[in-house]
Design a binder for these strands. Structure first.
Length: 277
DNA sequence: AGAAGGACCTGCACGC
DNA sequence: TGCGTGCAGGTCCTTC
């Protein structure tokens, strides 16, 4: 499912339904071992903590947790990465447990928070915070707020293609395959161009295009390709605005030439040979 | 050190 | 109908 705009909608809606609630019993499937802690350690540590806030950090969903005292001090974080097919659901415990459910947290409000991930590319992690500065920062810079100069500096001297650079989460976090292709089309940049060879002016156009596409997609509830739905089961609408992504062989909306497909960094890459130079 | 490519999974659409 | 192939919103690890 998820790139920044899809992930953005999830914590907003989950937050509204779980904020202030205490985590009760925790069940975890034999999913892959969580990052840096064991499965049983994570389950034990989560039980009893209060959810103070749920928010997005790159493509990660961060649950800020307190021990439940009056101070509301954040002492731990539960971090969920949805991978390709992960979903977070807040449901009545009576509802049947869906196939590929890997985590289920009982909440004091009476509902259950469930993590479902058929393809198992997602990831769970638990962090204990000794000082607030340890707070989970995400791997790279935030594309929606990065300053112009910082954006240009990210790509300086890099030989890899601009498409691969956009997908690299240690540079910018949150950009995935759809919005990399869509922003490169809107900026008129060929995805194969070496990132370090693009002029500052072209990089600034890319920054504008990327931010525009991401904001637009957030406003439309993300892109629903195949079966993506958010925590409320609602579909996004941004897929209607896709100009190149998954439009191989269809006419370019600008020039009418056929959209091409190639593979960059192992990912399907869609572009217009005529409009992107 | 940076970059490329395979590995990890299930499910679906397609063609034979 | 059924099977094989290729493709899918993402990282992560190994190799060069």
């Amino acid at each position: 499912m998820p790139e920044l705009p899809e992930v953005e909608t999830v914590p907003n809606r989950v937050d509204a339904r779980v904020r202030g609630q205490r985590i009760g019993s925790v069940w975890l499937s034999r999913y892959k071992e969580p990052f840096k802690t064991s499965r049983t350690e994570m389950a034990d540590a989560l039980a009893g903590l209060r959810i103070e806030r749920v928010r997005r950090e790159g493509k990660h969903i961060v649950f800020d947790l307190s021990s439940g005292g009056c101070s509301h001090q954040i002492t731990a974080q539960w971090v969920v990465h949805l991978g390709m097919t992960g979903r977070l659901l807040v449901l009545s415990p009576e509802l049947p447990v869906e196939k590929h459910t890997h985590a289920s947290l009982a909440l004091s409000g009476g509902r259950e928070l469930r993590f479902v991930d058929p393809r198992r590319f997602g990831r769970l992690a638990f962090y204990r915070l000794l000082i607030a500065a340890d707070s989970f920062p995400g791997p790279g810079r935030e594309p929606l707020t990065i300053a112009k100069d910082d954006f240009i500096a990210l790509f300086r001297g890099r030989k890899l293609s601009i498409k691969a650079a956009l997908l690299n989460q240690t540079l910018l976090h949150g950009v995935g395959n759809i919005y990399a292709d869509e922003s490169l089309f809107r900026a008129g940049i060929r995805p194969t161009r070496p990132a370090g060879r693009l002029s500052p002016a072209r990089l600034l156009r890319l920054r504008e295009a990327l931010q525009h596409v991401l904001r637009e997609a957030i406003a439309r509830g993300g892109s629903s390709v195949s079966d993506y739905v958010d925590a409320n089961g609602e579909k996004g609408l941004f897929q209607l605005e896709h100009r190149v992504y998954m439009r191989t062989g269809q006419p370019c909306v600008t020039c009418g030439k056929l959209i091409q497909r190639t593979v960059i960094a192992g990912r399907g890459t869609h572009y217009c040979l005529h409009c992107q130079r």
